[in-house]
């Protein structure tokens, strides 16, 4: 689920940009060190594959709804988490720039939620430990279960992160418990489906081209990544809580909401004055501003022809 610029505050957005940027720098350094020169076209084409795959929906059994692939976990299984993270970053960037999915400020948050969590937490901390050092030797059932658990884990954390970041931002009025109750079960279902789809593709590939797995997926160790994930989490939590304490508008307001305390007068004060003359003034000003802007646009269009 993409977070949107409109629902995110600058501090939260900037923090997540820092976290995403740090992970990107770390991944790009690691990838440069491996010196696999076939990686550039491979990553590029697989990014395009994920992009195309996300446009194809499949029906979810028993529900009548449909889902599509997120791709982070699949890529991590194929290429390792570092390359997968860079690929997901590129897919999200293109979606933000061309389709307005999420927007640029929220891009950092989306990269962390949909890239960092599935690639590093889902793959490195769930998938790999469950399958051990030789995933090719594991039974199809075991691969399926591990993939599903990894996908669910990644998405649950992602959904939780979306709720927390929305809350810290304080733009939406959703209460924390309600929002969590909405997001976590939905993403449990989505995670299960995504896990099954990913497992089905991995198993298909393993049958069709077993040679691929040994050749392209590099071995990677958990330790430096654990460090990176912890750092990013600490950073986010630190800045988030600092922000929440300086801006009562966001977190505390939501908590006050959910606990039933309504402070109506508090809101009324935030708008300078509630009387008819100022709203007339505002409406008039808004109309004048908009007509000015449209006038400028029209004029420029005329002049540039």
């Amino acid at each position: 689920m993409h977070m949107a610029d409109a629902l995110i505050s600058p501090v939260v957005g900037a923090t997540m940009w820092v976290a995403a940027g740090a992970t990107l720098a770390y991944c790009s350094r690691t990838l440069r060190q491996t010196r696999q020169e076939q990686l550039a076209p491979l990553m590029g084409v697989l990014g395009a594959f994920i992009f195309a795959a996300q446009m194809i929906n499949f029906s979810i059994p028993l529900t009548g709804s449909s889902g599509h692939l997120g791709g982070g976990l699949l890529l991590a299984i194929l290429l390792g988490p570092h390359a997968a993270f860079v690929i997901i970053t590129s897919v999200l960037t293109v979606q933000a720039l061309f389709f307005g999915d999420g927007g640029l400020l929220a891009l950092g948050a989306n990269i962390c939620n949909l890239g960092l969590l599935p690639c590093f937490v889902g793959y490195l901390l769930i998938y790999q430990p469950l399958l051990g050092p030789d995933p090719l030797a594991c039974s199809a059932r075991r691969v399926g279960i591990a993939t599903a658990l990894a996908a669910i884990g990644g998405l649950q954390l992602g959904a939780f992160s979306v709720v927390m970041l929305t809350l810290f931002s304080g733009i939406s009025s959703l209460p924390v418990d309600g929002f969590l109750l909405l997001m976590q079960p939905i993403h449990l279902a989505i995670g299960l489906v995504e896990g099954l789809a990913t497992a089905a593709i991995v198993l298909f590939l393993r049958r069709a081209r077993p040679d691929l797995f040994s050749s392209i997926a590099p071995a990677s160790s958990i330790k430096p990544l654990l460090g990176a994930v912890c750092l990013a989490t600490a950073l986010t939590a630190g800045v988030g809580s600092w922000f929440a304490s300086t801006q009562p508008d966001g977190l505390e307001w939501s908590i006050a909401r959910t606990s039933g305390a309504t402070e109506q007068t508090d809101h009324a004060r935030s708008w300078p004055a509630v009387d008819t003359s100022t709203s007339l003034e505002g409406l008039l000003g808004a109309a004048a501003t908009l007509s000015l802007i449209l006038g400028i646009g029209f004029l420029l269009r005329r002049l540039s022809k």
């Binding site: 076939q38 084409v45 395009a48 499949f58 029906s59 449909s66 692939l69 099954l196 691929l212």
Partner: peptide
Amino acid sequence: RLNLGVYAGLLGHLLLRALERAQ
């Protein structure tokens, strides 16, 4: 609508082609 098996086959083939193209 695609059921999961057909979907996985479709995407798997697409993925194989993508890997060959990358090569």
